[in-house]
Amino acid sequence: MRLLNLLPIPLVATVASAYFEITSPSENAQWRNGGVNVISWEKGTLDGIDSFDIEMTRLSEDGLTYIASTVPAEKASPSSLNVYLENIPAADDYFLLFLNATHGIMYTTSPRFTILNSSATSTSGSTPTPDRAVATVTISGTPNPTQGFVTTFAAASSALPNLEWRALVGIGAVLVAGLGGAVCVLV
């Protein structure tokens, strides 16, 4: 008998929904200044994450580069983003952070990757192919935590109906509880 058949339903849903992984850049990937590089990810479906923010940081330097805010995380939306690099300091200790910057919730981090100067020769031998179906964000210069996100996507359209539905359920529950309390007092 499989283990999943023995687990209670809520636990199975929790295990299945806790999946969020950055698939590109992969470990030891080399991005190039003056070129388009691809960020891609895979994520679970029942995690309640409608959108997330993308930041880039270095291990040996202070500072963040804010790449994109409210990136759609729905299954129907593309799960990649093109990033054009312009004058980013070359180094081998970069990481991407997927998080909710407003609430300080970290979802996942990428493996360590390298950014090369535009004239450097890649030792990985492969050049990332941009995804023509998704947006391209241009980032440039050194990390600047006082600068905002380079791109902000529109709020996920499916998040609003879910919020309205949840609000109606909450209001209904309060009304039922109030009426139940009133009946108990009158009886």
Rank of each mutant, 00 (worst) to 15 (best):
T136D: 06
N144K: 03
T142Q: 14
A154R: 10
G148C: 06
C184T: 15
N162F: 04
G170L: 14
P143D: 06
Q147D: 11
Q147H: 03
T142R: 12
A133W: 04
L163I: 03
V134R: 10
V169Y: 08
A133E: 13
A155R: 07
A156P: 00
A177F: 13
Q147I: 08
V134H: 01
F149A: 01
S157I: 05
A177R: 07
G178V: 15
L160F: 12
L168M: 15
W165M: 14
A159Y: 09
W165E: 06
Q147V: 06
R166Q: 12
V174Y: 12
V176S: 04
A173C: 14
T136Y: 05
A159E: 00
I139C: 03
P161H: 11
V150M: 05
V134P: 01
A133Q: 04
I139K: 09
L175T: 12
F153G: 00
G141R: 07
V176Y: 04
V134K: 07
L175F: 11
V183Y: 10
A135P: 02
G172S: 15
P143R: 08
A156T: 10
A167E: 09
A135T: 06
S140D: 07
G181L: 12
W165H: 10
G170F: 15
S158A: 12
P145F: 02
I139M: 00
A159W: 00
A177D: 02
V137M: 09
V176R: 04
S158Y: 03
G180F: 14
V174P: 01
N162Q: 08
P161K: 03
V176Q: 02
L179Y: 13
G180Q: 12
V174W: 07
T136I: 06
R166W: 10
N162D: 04
A167R: 09
T136F: 05
A167H: 05
F149T: 00
V169D: 02
G178C: 15
T151F: 11
T138Q: 08
Q147G: 08
R166N: 13
L163D: 07
T152I: 06
T146F: 07
L168E: 10
I171G: 02
A135D: 11
V185N: 11
G148Q: 07
V185C: 03
G181D: 02
L163R: 08
E164D: 01
A155Y: 00
G181Q: 12
V174Q: 13
G181V: 13
F153W: 00
L168Q: 11
G180L: 14
I139D: 01
A156N: 08
E164W: 03
V150Q: 11
G170C: 11
N162M: 09
A173E: 09
V183N: 06
Q147A: 14
S158K: 04
R166P: 04
G180K: 01
R166F: 13
I171W: 07
A173F: 13
L168G: 15
T146V: 13
G148S: 12
